[in-house]
């Protein structure tokens, strides 16, 4: 049964997209990855609006003071097992917004992150590569 569940997860991971206070650059590249030119749907990946339906959280942005608590709550609403892909320089280190007073902390100080995709903004190819790497990790047992 566990094997079947992992196989299902591998063949069709549903993602939840969150902007944690970024400039939108990463967000539109994530959306671009879903559209015909890049088409991540061929990996069975679907964008879902509700955290309760999602397996993977794709998060971009600097994690501002105001959003940090909300992101934590949204993460807690996702069912187990859950995975996080952090997209963009801001989510990784704060990027160009380091030391701005609005930045609370890095994404991985708020929620555990499985895959980091660097770039400002990363190209859709890089985001797809990150998600595919995550799928490899899920097949090997995952981090949860």
């Amino acid at each position: 049964m566990g094997k079947l569940a992992t196989w299902c997860r591998l063949k069709s991971p549903w993602i939840l997209h969150i902007n944690a206070g970024g400039c939108n650059g990463c967000d539109i590249e994530i959306l671009a990855a879903l559209t015909p030119r890049y088409d991540v749907e061929r990996f069975g990946i679907l964008l879902k609006p509700s955290p309760r339906h999602a397996d993977v959280m794709v998060i971009a942005g600097v994690m501002t003071r105001q959003i940090a608590e909300r992101v934590k709550r949204i993460y807690e609403q996702m069912p187990e097992p859950k995975f996080v892909v952090a997209v963009g320089a801001c989510a990784l280190t704060g990027g160009v917004f380091q030391n701005c007073y609005g930045q609370a902390m890095r994404v991985d100080q708020v929620i555990p992150v499985d895959v980091y995709v660097p770039g400002c903004p990363p190209k859709p190819e890089a985001i797809i590569d990150g998600v595919v790497k995550l799928l490899g990790k899920v097949g090997g047992g995952g981090s949860q």
Binding site: G22, N24, T64, R70, F97, Q103
Partner: peptide, 29 residues
């Protein structure tokens, strides 16, 4: 205000040349 990062303040702490790269990241679109 969920996306408030404090760019106006940060711009005062950086030089004019560095600010070009900060300010174009107000909005990626």
């Amino acid at each position: 205000g969920y996306v408030h990062r404090g760019i106006e303040k940060a711009a005062e702490l950086r030089s004019y040349i560095q600010d070009v790269y900060l300010i174009e990241r107000i909005c990626g679109i």
